[in-house]
């Protein structure tokens, strides 16, 4: 599983925030555009792209994009 690709998929869920903003270290809850709907989209994206079920609690407790990537990698 590729971290850069995960970051790109993560970035695709945003409309306003430029793709260049996203790195593995991005603290996504702090992004201005972050919303609960984007959180739901991230869960659905992970389901679709990686066939992994993550939960609202995982999205809540992870801080950086890489944290979430590690959870997905573990369950893949």
């Amino acid at each position: 599983m590729d971290l850069q690709e995960f970051v790109a998929h993560f970035a695709e869920q945003f409309e306003e925030t430029d793709a260049s903003v996203f790195t593995p270290q991005t603290k996504y809850h702090e992004l201005e555009e972050w919303s609960s709907l984007i959180g739901l989209s991230i869960i659905a994206m992970v389901d679709e792209e990686y066939d992994v079920a993550i939960k609202g609690n995982d999205v809540k407790s992870s801080v950086t994009i890489e944290d979430l990537f590690n959870i997905v990698k573990e369950r893949a």
Binding site: G56, N57, K60
Partner: peptide, 9 residues
């Protein structure tokens, strides 16, 4: 519970 919404939400 345990779905797309966190316990906090």
């Amino acid at each position: 519970t345990g779905g797309a919404h966190s316990d906090d939400d």
